[in-house]
Each structure stands twice: as C-alpha cells, then as structure tokens.
Design a protein around this nucleic acid. Sequence first.
DNA 1: AAATAATCGAGACGGTACGTCAGGTCTTAAA
DNA 2: TTTAAGACCTGACGTACCGTCTCGATTATTT
Lengths: 195, 195, 195, 195
Amino acid sequence: MSYSLPSRGRPRDPRSHEAIIRATAELVVEFGYAATSIAAVATRAGVGKDTIYRRWPGKPELVFEAVFTTTDYAPPPDTGTLAEDLTVLLQGLVDEFRAPAAAAALPGLLADFAADPGLKARIRGDFLAPSKERLLVVFERAVMRGEIAAETPVDLVLDTLAGAVFFHIGLVGEPADPQLSALLAAVVAKGIEVR
Amino acid sequence: MSYSLPSRGRPRDPRSHEAIIRATAELVVEFGYAATSIAAVATRAGVGKDTIYRRWPGKPELVFEAVFTTTDYAPPPDTGTLAEDLTVLLQGLVDEFRAPAAAAALPGLLADFAADPGLKARIRGDFLAPSKERLLVVFERAVMRGEIAAETPVDLVLDTLAGAVFFHIGLVGEPADPQLSALLAAVVAKGIEVR
Amino acid sequence: MSYSLPSRGRPRDPRSHEAIIRATAELVVEFGYAATSIAAVATRAGVGKDTIYRRWPGKPELVFEAVFTTTDYAPPPDTGTLAEDLTVLLQGLVDEFRAPAAAAALPGLLADFAADPGLKARIRGDFLAPSKERLLVVFERAVMRGEIAAETPVDLVLDTLAGAVFFHIGLVGEPADPQLSALLAAVVAKGIEVR
Amino acid sequence: MSYSLPSRGRPRDPRSHEAIIRATAELVVEFGYAATSIAAVATRAGVGKDTIYRRWPGKPELVFEAVFTTTDYAPPPDTGTLAEDLTVLLQGLVDEFRAPAAAAALPGLLADFAADPGLKARIRGDFLAPSKERLLVVFERAVMRGEIAAETPVDLVLDTLAGAVFFHIGLVGEPADPQLSALLAAVVAKGIEVR
DNA sequence: AAATAATCGAGACGGTACGTCAGGTCTTAAA
DNA sequence: TTTAAGACCTGACGTACCGTCTCGATTATTT
C-alpha cells in the first residue's frame, strides 16, 4: 500500500519509513490503538510529523500497514477435504488476530475504517482480500470434489469465519483454544456441504 | 445498567437522564460514535457535563445505554426446528445491528469496550447476555429433540453468529439481504446437528 | 456585619454560624483565599452550602467576617506625642495584617472587593473604619497640641499607612521587623507636622 | 519578561504574541481581571489556547506583561530638590496605576502574585524594579545635597509610596486628585529629611 | 557549478475535546 | 422555615491530539 510518488527533489529516506512502521507497531502493542498518537510515533521514530503525513493519510492507514506487514503469501491449503482446508485457513486467521500488534490494534482499527466512508469500502479489500483468494481456491477444489455447491456464497462464509474469530478472539478475548480452528471449521464445513 | 444509588439530598432528575439518553442516540446517528462528544450531548440535552459524568463513567457506558435501551425481552423462539429457531434469533440480532443508532455506534463502541480491561469483561455480559439466554433455551429444546449434542458450545456458536452479523452488517456494511438470517441459520444449524 | 433577618419557621442554629466562621478561617490559613471554596467550607463545617449562602452573599463577605472577627475595640492611643500615637496605631495595623488568616486572605479579599462595584465602596468602610476612628482622635489631640494642622487629610494619611503596611507585609512579604511601626510612624509624623 | 527561547523548528509568530497581548489588555479593561479567561483571550486574539500557554505559564504572567508593556524607561527626575523629584516619581506611579488596563488588573493581579510562592518573590522585582532604580538615583542626589541620610531605607520608602498610591487609587478608587502626588511627596520628603 | 525542488527534524499554529472543579441555585426529607 | 445532602447549569481550567504550516538545513535532479 503506497500513497505517493514524487520524482524530483530529495528522495524520501527509506529508513524513515521503516522506523515509523516499527515505532507504530511498538506503540500499538505497548499502549493500544487509541492511545497511539501520530506525535508519539514521530517522536519514537525520530522523525517529524510531516514525514508521517507525507506517506500516510492518517492513523488508520498507518497502523494498518504497520500491523499487517506480515502479509502472508502462504499458498492455499490443499489437504484433500474441505474441513481440513478450512481448519488450516482458519488457523491462519487465528494466528493473525492473535499476533500482539494485531490483537491490540484490530478493534480500534476496524472501528476507524468503518467510521470513514472512504475507508469502509476497503475493509473487505485490505483486510480480507488475501484470505478470500485462498478461500476461493479451497472452494473451487471442494466444488470439484463435489463437497459443496458451486454457488456457495464466498463472501458470507468469509465474513462468518472472520467475524467469528474477531469476536471470539479480538473482542471477547477468549484464551487460546488450540482446537478452535478445527471446531469452527468442522461446523462451517458441515454446514455448507451439500449432503 | 445503573451506576449509582444515593439516598439523601436532592434526587436525580429522571428527565435529565432521559434527555441525555435521547441526545446521545441522536448525535450518534447524526455524526457517528467518534464525533459524538460529551460536551455536545450535554448541550443538546440542555444539561451540564457534570450531570452526565455523575451518572456514567464515560462515553462508552453512556452510548451503550443510549443505544441498547430497547433491550428485547422477547421470548426465545420455539418454531419446532433448530434451523428456524436460529433464523428467528438471528433476525433479532440483524435487526438490532441494523438499527440506526446501533449501526452507527457499534464498531467504535466495541473498540472502546475492548480497549479498556474493565469494560472488555463486560462485552459478553452486556452485549450478548440477552441473546445467550434465548440461545440456551433454543439449544435445550434442540437437545431434547435430538437435533444437537448436549455439549454443543453455546458461547462459540453465539460468538460465531454475532461475529458474522457484526462483520457482515456492521463493518463491511453489506446491504440488507432479507435471506441473510435464514441462510446463516441454515449453515450453522446444519453444522452443529448431530447427523 | 449581618446579612439577613428571618422571623418565622425554624430558627437558625447559631452553632452553624460559628462552625462556618471557624472552618473558613482554617481553610484560608491552610490553603489560601483562592483555594478556599464554599463547598469545602460547608463540608468542614458540617453544614450545607445553602446554610452559608443564606447568611452571606458570597465568599468575599464570608471570608471578611471570618478573618476580621477580632474587631479591635481598642481605645485610641494617647501617649502624648503624635509619633508615638501613630506607632501604636500602626502596630495594630501590622498585627492585624500579620495574623495568619488575615495575611493569607487579604490580597485576594481586597481584589474581590475591588472587582465588585458594590463591595468596592465598602473597602474604606469595612476595612478601615475602626482605624479611621482612632486616627481621628489621635489627630484631634495632635491638633490641640499644635503638632499638625487642622486640615490634615485623614483619609490620605490612613490610605498611606494602610497601603504601606499592606504592600510591605501583605504583598512583598517582608519578614517581621519590630521597628517597622516606629520607623514608619516617625516618617509620617514628621512629614505632616507643621514645623 | 520572556519565558522561552527555542531555536529549532518553526519560529513563534510575533503577530500571535502581539494579538494575545492586545486581546488581554482589552478584555481586562472591558470585563476585569477575574472575568478574563485564557479561552476568551485566545478567541479574541484568533489564537489557540496552546499558543498562549506555550508563551506564558498562566494568567498572572500574561496579564502582567499585557498591562505593563509600557515599561517606562523615563530617566530619573532631577529637579534639584527631593520633594519635587519625589513628586515627579510619584506622578509616574499614579499615571501607571490609573491607566485603564492597570487599574482594572492590579488588585487581582497582585493577589494572584501574592498567592503563588514563586510569583510572590517577583512582585518587588517585576512591579517595583523600574521605580526602585529611579528612586535610588533620586536618593543618591538627595544624599549628596545633604537632604537625607545615606542609610535611608529605599525599599521601605518605595513600599510606602507604592502602597499609598495602590490603596488610594487602586483599591479605594478615589477620584483623580491632581495634587495627590505633590501632597504625598511633600509628606514623605519632609518625613525622611535629616532636618 | 548553479538553480531548483522535494525531503528532513523540529516545533508552532488554530481547533476541539477531555475530565475536573467552583460558583450559586434548587429540591428533597427531616426537624 | 431551616437544616444537611446533594443534584443542577454554567463556564473556566490546563492538557493532549489533530492535521497543517513554517523554519533552516540537507540531498537530489535539472539547467
């Protein structure tokens, strides 16, 4: 996610970018999303505030990038059954939501995205896009195996999976349950299977 | 949810209480959760700020009460099948989440609750308690009918249902789909049925 | 200085009056004039705020009475010479200004009196009246002794004496100088003597 | 009186400084010292509150600077006699105390300075310093002329003059008497003269 | 080499909201 | 009618962030 592209003049220092991202992630973990101010990020990164605003429109976009840099380019799971594929996929979501920075940032971050009309449209794109691609492949294979119908609503299933994990982990703050992914995957898989 | 109970001295004016609640709900609908300030609520309610702080510890608690005064004491559905019971129950959640004030407040409200350790513990209690009671009854009947196992995890199912609706409606902002409740209920019901 | 006179119903409890005066004097000494609030006085006196407002119009009047209850009905000095009479009179002023409660209250008290048109007119009356009476007698005797002219401006001399003591003691906070009264009296006496 | 001296970053806008000073002086004249709030100053000056707090620690320091910007660098009077020198000097004090802003601000200002231990020490320095320098020169000349003793207590005389004027003009609010300076100067001069 | 231009850290700028506190009035039940 | 208690509205307090701006200085590209 990049936000500008100048050409002449002094080029932007990439070390600033990195320092800002790191400072943001640290502060979010230490103090939470709401208590993380741009000014504090600038101070910790040893950077001027403008250097931040020059690169990101605001806190939501900055924190999003700082927290989700570990964009997983993991290949879609292919275990042979829908339930196990979903388990792997869900475990990825769980891991993502349970990462310290993400866990600390997600509720406030999603709230800020939802509150801004321009950002709201990007929740599905920015937050869920990687998972959706993998889910699509998983579904394709499941359709070919005859496990689910071709018209199974991907978005709704994805919202359900993400919503369940977000609510269970991010909001309610349930302790880590190693069987969560398998349990949820089993329910959903069985729920959408044709027979 | 009440926050005080004095006895001597001038009693608190219930009209202030009501005016504050109404003003809060209006402002949340008009400007959103984040842009609703205590001072603005006080002004619109024709009330001093202290009168608000005397009754509620802060914005989250105030908005929660203002938005969820319509605590539904609806009886648990009893249609005869789990899927239909869940459909009714889910429709209640959808209606609740789609109410103007709730839709405007929920993301920010849940974020503020999640950010405060003291409030986080109350998300399950305050937000989900009514639904959980009804779901428990629905599950009891389903167990008696032999549709689901006795040990079906109520909390996880509830988090899934609420999370799905919150993500789909509240965050992503999908347009109203009259079949959403039925679809989701069918998937989950089938997913947790014993056979 | 009394501010009200009811007649029917429950009579006012004189112990409240005393408790309020004492609490006021204590708080002024402990925290200063500005930091002494009516609410704090009420709490320490074990009294409701209205009981205070029913007897005094506001903080300035209350503190004035609390701090200057020791209204000195001392007779005018009569030592035989103007300089010595003035020394005694001045020592009275110095003692009054150096009393803990008065020292703590005077600057703020005079400021509040000066800021209110209604009270400003009473500075000369309430604060300086007792001293003026005694100074008048002292002057009469000095005139008869031929030390000063008959038309010596009493008010101006009194303002000078009071102003000097207030500035030196109350504002600048000079440490106690036992010779201050004599020194100042000598200067002024010599300054206004006819020869 | 300056309160900060940074070097890096955007320099402070001198127009803000000027606008704040002017707004302060205006408000003090219009509404009095106590009724002049920092917020009101900020609004009238078209300035944020922080811009004020960045330059002055609080209202007393701000008002002091706003009211006494006309620091008189007038040379010490040199008329040939102590009494006339004092008359000129006193007339300067009278003019200063009778200036609209000063008259409106002085009682409250001095009270706030006296109430704060840190500021109290500065009354003699900030308020009286210019007059003291001139009085010292006047006294030196008077000593050389043999009018007064070398050890005449400058501070006490200054407190007396300032206190007299402050009490007579500032507190009691006596109307303008063109002969006041001469009268007071005559008394004090005669009072401290050696013969 | 000189001019142009965008960057950098720093921090001032006008706003807005925060949560607390004081002032002075009003309202209860009890005396 | 007073009392203690305490709620009420108003408005000021001093702090913290917001996102923009202005400074001198630095580092590129363009002339």
